[in-house]
Write a protein that binds this DNA or RNA. Structure first.
Lengths: 131, 131
DNA sequence: CGGTATCCCTCCCGATACTG
DNA sequence: CAGTATCGGGAGGGATACCG
């Protein structure tokens, strides 16, 4: 039932592009990670992920709810209370996200090293007769 | 040697943030995927991934080379020829990328469904007394 | 408390033109 | 062929103020 083999990420309309841009979003992954083990309220989320502006968090949340990855439950109380939790679908996203996290844990050092080396080269060589 | 357990993605300086933003980049993943099985020249890459402007591809490639994920080899010929290939480090990135691809292959349908349902709700209910 | 409305500003992206 | 230079538009991110 998977149509995995006919996926072509080079097509602009490819679904993987959609997911990729989602993951690349500044706050999406943080929200999902924050909800990994707990149900959180709006301001709790804000505190946990360090989101500066409520607008941004609100946007992120709405997009996640729209895509069925997070569910929103509001209580008719005073003061109002709203809880966000991962849906089953949202929980499945934890796997690929963690694959990325694991890669970062293992290889970021290499990337940083490579970057330093490249920057040194630029500073000395390509800087062009700067001494 | 891995320091995986002390990784906190909620820290702004966390390495996983760096990798995430990399993956979210518009062209980075496409370039890596394009170089998966072959060595390609600049214009071949452009054709394959459908990058419209050379500037953008150039930027992407420079960043990838800087981070040690792609290597660049130029030949002193006329006309000039430049080949790009994945480094060993870059090849390791294929794993997490593929995890995301696989997720997309399996679950994008669900996301699209959820999105449609949510949009219908908005159109009928939240549109607000539109009839 | 849980958002929305508004404004600003930066960064990314893209097209075009030009150079080695 | 393989880029760089320049310019411009648009989306996204962020701070602040305000509303239910």
């Amino acid at each position: 039932m998977e149509t995995e083999e006919c996926y072509d990420p080079f097509q602009p309309n490819c679904p993987s592009r959609l997911i990729l841009s989602r993951i690349g979003d500044r706050w999406t992954v943080l929200v999902i990670l924050a909800l990994r083990h707990e149900v959180l309220r709006f301001s709790e989320l804000r505190t946990k992920i360090g989101s500066p502006a409520p607008k941004v968090l609100s946007q992120t949340l709405q997009a996640l709810v729209r895509d069925g990855l997070v569910s929103r439950q509001a209580y008719a109380e005073v003061p109002p209370r709203v809880e966000y939790r991962l849906t089953d679908l949202g929980r499945t996203l934890l796997e690929p996200i963690d694959a990325v996290r694991r890669w970062a844990a293992v290889h970021t050092g290499d990337v940083l090293d490579a970057r330093e080396r490249a920057d040194e080269l630029v500073a000395s060589g390509a800087g062009g007769a700067d001494r």
